[in-house]
Design a protein around this nucleic acid. Structure first.
Lengths: 214, 214
DNA sequence: AACGCTACCAAGCAAGCGCTTGGTATTCAA
DNA sequence: TTGAATACCAAGCGCTTGCTTGGTAGCGTT
């Protein structure tokens, strides 16, 4: 793996998706995508995002990874725990990605732009499968699970708030601006398709950035 | 009802919620809320909004209006048809409300402000129960139902697009701006509680207006 | 008085759901 | 060579789900 080592040396804070995942797995922060549990989580992220949590059955999920439905409960205690685990993986990976993107930005304006683009990539590229679940399926979690995920999410939101403050966004309190952005960005899952040659993710980022900055 | 007649004469385009509903019922555009079907739709709007469509059972819904679950299917062919009917009622009422609000606005800027406030009121006040379902439960509709609701929704969206164009919002195409607004506004259902003395709907409207206008 | 219409009940069916149980094949360390 | 751990199968349990069926009570019309 001489190429990857070289890339790492050249741009240590801009890892490729593969490299970032590998690093997080080694630190024990992320489940190995090649492990049975990892494959299950990956398939769950896809199905929950596409069909929704309630409309995805454990039989669907089992079929997706090629096992029987009962075997799922060798890895997870309940269907809800799968959703919770997916969300934890999602927010962990998204946090690492966005911190990297924010750190590499020069001025405050560029930092905010990087946050917007990072979240759009998380939603629309294969970067963070299942990211939109964080918003759409939040109510499907038990209160205990919500607290668990929320604790992991705090770091992610802090990066956002810092970026919004630094960029001096109009529209009141930074927390309010962030909440409006959460809605606007997550909803893009329903209508924006990067395959449309008409509008790329950087294009979309530009437009949103223009609206939310003075 | 001398008072209401007087109010009608004084401000014919600013009907109260009750009056507006009454007028729409008489035109056959809305189901009478006092009828069995109307009470069922109202209860469904509340439950679908609070718990989500999939997590609401027909038994929940029947209990809410005080009948047995089987009796529901005397009024509707399927659970999905209830959701479809709710959405049609929602968009019909919301359209009438917003057209009234937009027509009463003076300048283009005020028109956009009125649209924002009207949609926020639809989401958070009792004005249009179940409005947020239009976004959150869209995927729970069959494709045929989606087309039906979409047809009704076109008028509503046209009012929005006109307002966005007239207000000269930055951020690219009006349709894009509207989509970002849909996300930002509908997501307020998850975090904004008008009971909070800290932030009222006009306050929130101001902040959003400030962000989305030049 | 007879009819038809609306609104509902009582009972339950068939299917699908999340999840459990007891057992087996494979792997790998002691 | 044995024993423990992992990953899974085969079968199905108990429950909930949306929905059906056959019947009834009340009401307004003719």
């Amino acid at each position: 793996m001489r190429e990857s080592a070289q890339a790492l040396a050249e741009a240590p804070s801009q890892l490729s998706s593969q490299q970032l995942i590998g690093a997080l797995v080694e630190q024990g922060l992320l489940t190995d995508p090649a492990s049975p549990r990892g494959r299950l989580l990956f398939a769950a992220a896809r199905l929950f995002e596409q069909r929704g949590f309630a409309r995805t059955t454990v039989r669907d999920l089992a079929a997706e990874v090629g096992i029987l439905s009962g075997s799922i409960f060798h890895h997870f205690a309940s269907k809800e725990q799968i959703l919770c685990a997916v969300m934890k993986e999602v927010i962990t990976l998204a946090s690492a990605r966005m911190r990297s993107a924010a750190e590499n930005a020069g001025c405050p304006q560029e930092k905010l732009r990087a946050c917007i683009q990072s979240e759009l990539e998380a939603i629309h590229e294969q970067a963070v499968p299942g990211f939109s679940i964080l918003v759409t399926e939040w109510r499907s979690l038990t209160e205990e699970s919500q607290e668990e995920v929320l604790r992991l999410r705090e770091e992610y939101e802090q990066i956002w708030l810092d970026a919004i403050v630094a960029a001096k966004c109009p529209g009141g309190a930074p927390a309010l601006v962030r909440r409006l952005l959460v809605g606007a960005l997550s909803h893009t899952y329903s209508w924006f398709k990067p395959r449309n040659r008409g509008l790329s993710i950087p294009d979309l980022t530009d437009h949103i950035f223009q609206i939310f900055t003075p």
